[in-house]
């Protein structure tokens, strides 16, 4: 009986949690990522999900290009997915600007995401 009660309680809690998913309230606007630059490497921590996340990464990478770096490493510590804007930007760097771009990923889900999109070879994606 207690088990049943506990299970019903859990289901109700899950339902309330689900309801909350689609009811947005004002949230404090913050970027979702933190960036760290070491030599020619940009290390990205956090989920890369919004437009401002993309702008931040782009700014750091362009700084490295402007300093004359021809080889740039971008390491994603947590990201599971990347937006098409970031992919488009990386493609431009690689195919148009001829930057030797290397993408290192910690999350295996991001590696398979890049694999499905056929980008492993182009971005020299490496699991770390």
């Amino acid at each position: 009986m207690n088990d049943l009660k506990r299970s019903t309680h859990l289901e109700n809690e899950k339902m309330n949690d689900l309801k909350e998913l689609i009811h947005l309230r004002d949230e404090i606007f913050e970027t979702n990522i933190s960036l760290n630059v070491k030599n020619n490497e940009v290390i990205v921590s956090g989920d890369v999900v919004s437009i401002s996340d993309y702008w931040l990464i782009k700014e750091k990478v362009i700084n490295l290009v402007e300093k004359g770096n021809k080889e740039i490493i971008i390491t994603f510590n947590d990201a599971e997915f990347l937006s098409s804007s970031i992919i488009g930007f990386f493609l431009k760097l690689t195919l148009k600007d001829k930057i030797n771009l290397k993408v290192k990923v910690k999350n295996p889900q991001l590696y398979s995401f890049m694999e499905i999109l056929g980008l492993i070879k182009t971005f020299q994606v490496e699991k770390i």
Partner: peptide, 30 residues
């Protein structure tokens, strides 16, 4: 951008469904 950030933060606060935050926000972004 503001909307995406709101969705992401809301989902992240969810107890049972916070794993959906990156996926749903990436889909919405696109």
């Amino acid at each position: 951008d503001k909307f995406l950030s709101q969705v992401y933060r809301r989902l992240k606060k969810s107890k049972y469904f916070n794993f959906l935050a990156p996926k749903i926000t990436t889909i919405l972004n696109e």
